[in-house]
Computed example of a mutant assay.
Amino acid sequence: MDIAEVAKVSGLPASTLRYYEEKGLIKSYGRNGLRRLFSANVVERLALISLGRNAGFSLEEIYEMFTPDGPVINRELLLAKADELENKIAELTAMRDGLNHAAVCKAPNHFECPKFLRFLRIAGKNKVRQPSKLKKGDL
């Protein structure tokens, strides 16, 4: 399959395929003119990469799973990622519930609503990226 066919089948742009090849995640076996050629199993490998990316794995973590004999999955890493996803789901669920409540809350002012204030306290405990501090002479 040439790179255009792989891009069409996988839904990934050719630039991503070239980047994945540069990082060693996929490998072309030759060229047809200027187009890279890939074996048909590259689509399966790209699906595994997409699954890993969607689950929160870095490209480096995914790269480590690939061996010459095929993918080797680190089960402990899978369990750790599953725990991370579970925590993220809980955070997002709480956020959704808080926003839904705020949208229909009958309090005249949201700061008079005990449930909204609890929501704010929870949100305040989550680490938010703080802007870097300006140093003298930065302006």
Rank of each mutant, 00 (worst) to 15 (best):
T16A: 15
T67W: 04
R36N: 04
L78H: 03
E22F: 13
L92W: 06
A80K: 14
I122W: 13
C105K: 07
L46Y: 01
K106A: 12
E112Q: 11
N87L: 14
K115D: 12
G30S: 10
L17I: 11
C113P: 10
F38Q: 04
L17R: 10
R31Y: 12
A80F: 11
A107G: 04
K27L: 13
S39P: 06
L117N: 11
R121F: 08
L25I: 09
L117K: 14
S15R: 10
L78D: 02
K23W: 06
K27E: 08
G33Y: 09
I122H: 10
E86F: 10
R96M: 13
N74L: 01
G52C: 10
K125C: 11
K106D: 11
L77N: 05
E61T: 07
L34D: 07
A90V: 08
S15A: 15
T16N: 07
N41A: 09
N100M: 07
L59C: 04
D69Y: 02
C105E: 12
N54C: 06
Y63E: 11
F119S: 12
V104W: 02
A55K: 13
G33V: 11
L37I: 05
D69N: 03
I26A: 02
P71M: 08
V104L: 14
T93K: 15
A82P: 00
I89P: 01
L77G: 02
L85T: 01
R45K: 08
S15M: 05
L99Y: 14
A7W: 00
A90Q: 13
S28E: 11
K81P: 02
N109Y: 03
R18E: 01
I26G: 02
L99I: 15
P13R: 14
G124C: 03
R75P: 00
P13M: 08
E76F: 03
V72Q: 14
L51T: 12
G98A: 13
E112M: 12
A7N: 00
S15E: 14
Y19I: 09
Y29Q: 06
H110E: 06
A103P: 08
E86A: 15
V43N: 00
V72G: 02
E84L: 08
A94R: 15
A90T: 10
K125T: 15
L48R: 11
D69V: 00
A82T: 07
C105Q: 11
R118F: 08
N109W: 06
